[in-house]
Computed example of a mutant assay.
Amino acid sequence: MGRSADYTIQGFLYQFNQTLSELLKAADDAVITVEGIVEDIEVKTFSGTKAIQCKYHETQDKYSPSILYNPLLQMMKHFKSNSDAKIQYHLFAHFPDNPSITISPAELNSALSSRNKDLKVLIAEVAGVDIDGFLKVFCISVTPKYDDLVDDNTKLLEELGFNKGEVQTLFYPNAIQIIADLSIQHNEQLRTITKRNFLETLRRIRSTAVSQWTLALKTRQKILETRRKQLKENLNANVRLRHLVIFPAFLEQFDDQIVLFIKSFIDKYNFKLSHTLTPIFALDVSQVEIDEIAERLIGKDVIPNLGRPVKTFSENYFFREAMVQKDKKEFVLRFICWSDYKNLTHKVKADDIFVIGEGDTTGVDAKDVNIEILGAEKFEEIKYMMGICNAY
């Protein structure tokens, strides 16, 4: 299952939308600290100093404390093992009738004495927890309906002067992305922003953010279509140097799809003799995996230049121009590990660097280079945005 389908993503989006609401309603110079999306009890891919659970019960008939026993027990279990870690535990909850919810020692003791068989193991693990200590680092917030919160935020953006026709596909998703980027900062000072600076940053952005967050929004299809239009002009240019940096960690079916993706890109954007600038593909994999993928590419008659005349890497060999015999190029792409790519002495800077997947691009010289972040998780969506195919 892709991460955008994971319900925990919706929990984080809920939090981001609450933060956005506070920002848009604040005074221009008010300083807002974005809550960190630290390690969720059930999601181990995030790290930090705040543990979050979001329980969204839009269809629940009425509120009962027992509905929250599972997340409360999970948080208490984590607290018991990390009582000195200075972790704050936040529970965001929504119910149709928006009840006032109070979590006191009585509710926690009820959770610990529950006879629910599904909670038996968890209750045993939490036995002996310091309830009073936990309550000092715990808070719960009752929140409005998700769709209502999103609608309110888009209306607020329009009222602040953002073009109504671009709010859903440009400004709103980018607002969520800015907040998400701030939230992963470990230093609290780096998670602060004023409304004025936030709006100034948002107004300068002219390309739609594509990430696990924005593609989890209900406007996913519109975002993909908009991003495709934004990329079209540069991709249609015959003479343009393109580097593609690919992080496989969260890409679905990476091993099955990577060769087909590279071939489809070459067939679209580097098959003419007028395509004189050879693209570089830098993959965040081992050298052994690079060699295996290269062998598979050769089997598809897509010839890569790995920068190795025999065994040792040569930067001069890597950057040499491909020989052309009649209508066939000696090689059609340069192929390299991400770790080696970062150490290259680029004689000519790329016009575009496409970052596919999600990874750390710190250290890449982006001055005078057009960076395109495509944080989708499906190759079909990436190919659609890049104009390689017309459907996804």
Rank of each mutant, 00 (worst) to 15 (best):
L160K: 13
T169E: 07
D340I: 00
L202M: 11
E295R: 12
V137N: 02
I178Q: 04
F379S: 01
N343Y: 04
E158S: 14
Y317T: 04
P279Y: 01
Q185N: 13
L112W: 04
I87Q: 04
S4L: 15
R3C: 07
H94G: 03
C389F: 12
H275K: 12
P99N: 00
L277P: 01
M1S: 15
R3A: 11
Q88Y: 05
D368F: 12
E377H: 08
T33L: 07
D28W: 14
N163Y: 08
K80R: 15
P144F: 06
T194K: 06
D152K: 14
K136F: 04
L13R: 12
N153T: 01
E233K: 13
K55Y: 07
I87D: 05
L260A: 11
K80A: 07
S286V: 00
N153H: 10
P248K: 00
K326G: 09
R240V: 10
F79L: 02
F134G: 00
E233F: 10
D6M: 09
R196L: 13
R308T: 08
E381Y: 04
Q10E: 14
E252L: 08
P309Y: 09
V355Q: 06
A93R: 07
V364S: 00
M1L: 13
Q88P: 04
F138E: 01
L170K: 07
V150P: 01
P144W: 06
E200C: 05
K300G: 10
P99H: 01
K232S: 12
T226H: 08
F198S: 05
L374E: 13
C54K: 06
K195L: 03
D29T: 11
F379K: 00
I87W: 02
I371G: 03
A249P: 02
A30C: 10
H275Y: 12
K378C: 02
T49F: 10
I103R: 04
I298E: 12
T169K: 06
Q53T: 06
Y7V: 14
I356P: 07
Q10M: 12
L119N: 03
S114W: 04
S100Q: 15
T19V: 10
I280G: 00
K347F: 10
R227E: 04
I353W: 03
S211T: 13
E372D: 08
T49K: 09
S286D: 07
I67H: 12
F79K: 01
I52V: 13
K229I: 13
L374S: 01
N163D: 15
K326N: 14
L244N: 04
E200F: 12
E295V: 11
S207Q: 12
L73K: 01
N163S: 08
Q221P: 00
V324Y: 14
N238M: 13
N236L: 13
D351S: 07
T362H: 11
I37G: 11
L20N: 05
L231W: 10
K218W: 02
V210E: 09
I353F: 06
Y392L: 12
L333P: 00
A27V: 05
